[in-house]
Design a protein around this nucleic acid. Structure first.
Length: 288
DNA sequence: AGACATGTTGCTCA
DNA sequence: ATGAGCAACATGTC
């Protein structure tokens, strides 16, 4: 579920509910997997009594800062989500971590357990946070940097390249498909054989999808939509990609699905065309 | 029943 | 050394 904007949505949910509140109790379960890197007794000692001061989201990671130089990093994996419940919340089946304040329970739930929790103490944020690639919406994401990256990955299908966090932090399966659909680029197109105009269009749509997804999903300022996706319009591919018999909202033509770059991919054949010689080597079999 | 799932990592092979 | 492809992780849903 969580890509760039969903991660920001969940961060805000915890942040808006509990900013300034003190943790009075920590409930932690299943430390074999999600909490495997955590020294639980030390985590409890640091966390209880700490006050949530600030937080941020970068790519698909979140970092919550607590008083006493305590930091909590969370990655939601494939199925993780953060919710807010009353303070008496009895942990449900896949609630792996619950931070209880006097007014709220901050719940990290993840059925599939691909998520990760990191606990860090120190005046500076943890190293992994600082080494996340520059955001697509930052001025470091330039057309030249994009072109150089596509050249390096020239033989891979563009769909697979968009999923690489080292250059497209926060982009996941649905955002990659949305970007390519808007840019009218076929997902199996070899990354290195886009025209200069194609690269520029791709750059623009990377930024458009990130900006619009953040505004639609995570809201603006201190506002938060009631739920994920309630503000995503039917003009987006997102609304049609999983529906059986789904049609392209731009052309009205049927959508296509195949595994490209190792992931289920949806595109609009009427809009995203591939000429001879442009197909990435590994993607050819997927298009039969 | 079996296929498949909005993610990442670590292995193999070229 | 570098890049591409794929299985594995664990559980729920269609």
């Amino acid at each position: 579920m969580p890509e760039l904007a969903e991660v920001e949505y969940f961060r805000k949910r915890w942040h808006l509910a509990a900013r300034g509140e003190r943790i009075v109790e920590v409930l932690a379960h299943d430390r074999k997997k999600l909490l495997r890197e955590i020294d639980l007794p030390a985590f409890r000692r640091s966390m209880v009594g700490a006050r949530l001061e600030s937080s941020g989201a970068r790519a698909k990671q979140m970092l919550f800062r607590f008083s006493g130089d305590v930091w909590l990093g969370i990655h939601l994996g494939m199925t993780g989500e953060l919710t807010v419940a009353p303070p008496g919340h009895g942990p449900g089946r896949h609630d792996h971590l619950v931070l209880v304040t006097t007014h709220h329970a901050l719940v990290f739930n993840d059925p599939r357990m691909f998520g990760r929790v990191d606990f860090h103490v120190g005046p500076e944020p943890p190293a992994w946070w600082s080494s996340i690639a520059p955001a697509i919406l930052s001025d470091q994401f330039t057309v030249a940097a994009l072109a150089a990256f596509l050249r390096r990955r020239r033989r891979a299908p563009i769909k697979a390249v968009l999923l690489m966090q080292e250059r497209f932090p926060g982009v996941g399966n649905w955002m990659a498909d949305e970007i390519l659909w808007r840019a009218a680029i076929h997902p199996a197109h070899a990354a290195g054989s886009l025209t200069p105009a194609g690269v520029r269009t791709l750059w623009r749509e990377c930024r458009n999808v990130c900006r619009q997804a953040l505004a639609r999903i995570a809201g603006r300022g201190d506002s938060l939509p009631e739920d994920l996706n309630v503000n995503i319009p039917a003009t987006w591919l997102f609304k049609h990609r999983w529906r059986r018999g789904g049609r392209c909202p731009k052309t009205g033509q049927p959508l296509a699905h195949a595994t490209i770059g190792g992931r289920t991919t949806c595109w609009s054949p009427a809009r995203q065309k591939l000429k001879r010689g442009q197909t990435a080597t590994g993607a050819a079999s997927a298009l039969k």
